[in-house]
Write a protein that binds this DNA or RNA. Structure first.
Lengths: 219, 219
DNA sequence: GTCTATAGAATGATAGAC
DNA sequence: GTCTATCATTCTATAGAC
């Protein structure tokens, strides 16, 4: 407070505070964005604070100012991804019919794979290595979310709206297939002749995935 | 040769040669097996030669005797996995009907996910990080294999045996879904209450995957 | 809040005795 | 072929000037 009053003598205190605040916000954002990309490309150990600092065009020591340790930065990256997943997942059961609910969910998941391939890769990487960081999320939030969706799918089955498939494996299939376009992006692009999928190709992919899964469960 | 004759003075040269040969073979095998596991769990950078040596109960220097560099060992691990993939893939088009060909292929892929989860993870890890090592395989062998299978699927479509889906996305779905049980093993086990899938559960998973995909393309 | 310089620890790889 | 000891490098993290 006293500090701010002194500063008033030399300029607009509000502007100064805002500039500082937005600088911090912007630095956090740029560090997280490049961190996500570097972690996705090189893994936790392979990614270095120096590489992230270079990508963010910040001195390495500044990263340690905002995030005390490399692990703290990684944790923040993981949490951001998890939030995106959860928000998309919420749209799953706000729809009335199985057709609408599942096609919306699949479409949203495909859109996330396209918009956040790095985040998906960091998540995949984490799970592949035994989920040392996100173990809690798997056992609590993800498990709860999964169980409620399983209930919904089971209701559809008892109402005769879809085939009596195991809801668990249906969910795994949706996750695996949609995330494949992000996690195995490099393989998909290579098999596409080295060119990233364009708008039409993404739409075609979404349509195919949706068609096979919906028809596969009897819709 | 002269060396072996000298050794003959002290024992059975054939036994000695065999023992040495099998010791070498056994060392190679144990290094590769544990290397695969460590690489799968920690990634290329995260895995240390010391950790692999400890797992194989060999001095670290011995690993460098058999494999000059860490990269050479990793490369060998990748090649072993790739061979397994290709062999399983060959069973794809030896069958007559789409139903038989695809259900056999899916079943084989599920069996590999169960028998070689570490190998699958190393492969996934490699692709996620942009396939710095296996780029060649993707552009040549995998691309060729994929294209021949696409031709087969397209023939099924023109013959009216399956729905007119995009063969590429059908293959991606099979790959993604079957490999999910290996790559995301930790997540699958966690959502299964912490218990690995038993025989019945693996069979159930295979049946569900097969059912949805086959029915999904109109078989 | 930013940046330089560096400490301290871990790791890939090798030399050289056995 | 095996193993110990060690070098050279790299990286996280921090101290301290500005």
């Amino acid at each position: 407070m006293a500090d701010q009053l002194v500063k008033n003598l030399f300029g607009d205190p509000v502007d100064t505070a805002n500039k500082r605040h937005s600088a911090r916000k912007e630095n956090l954002e740029v560090i997280l964005r490049h961190g996500e990309r570097i972690f996705a490309e090189f893994g936790f150990k392979g990614a270095t604070m120096q590489a992230i600092a270079d990508a963010a065009t910040l001195p390495k020591a500044n990263l340690h100012y905002y995030f005390p340790t490399k692990m703290a930065l990684y944790h923040e990256v993981i949490e951001r991804i998890f939030t995106i997943w959860l928000e998309a997942a919420d749209s799953f059961d706000t729809s009335a019919s199985p057709r609408e609910a599942l096609s919306r969910y699949i479409r949203k998941k495909m859109e996330i794979s396209r918009a956040h391939p790095h985040g998906s890769k960091v998540w995949a990487n984490e799970v592949i290595h035994g989920a040392p960081i996100i173990q809690d999320y798997l056992q609590t939030t993800l498990k709860d979310w999964t169980n409620t969706r399983i209930d919904v799918i089971n209701r559809w089955i008892t109402e005769g709206k879809i085939d009596p498939v195991d809801p668990r494996h249906l969910l795994y299939m949706i996750w695996a297939t949609t995330q494949h376009y992000a996690d195995f992006q490099h393989q998909v692009v290579t098999l596409n002749g080295g060119t990233p999928l364009d708008d039409a190709q993404w739409q075609r992919a979404t349509e195919n995935v949706t068609h096979i899964i919906l028809k596969g469960i009897g819709i």
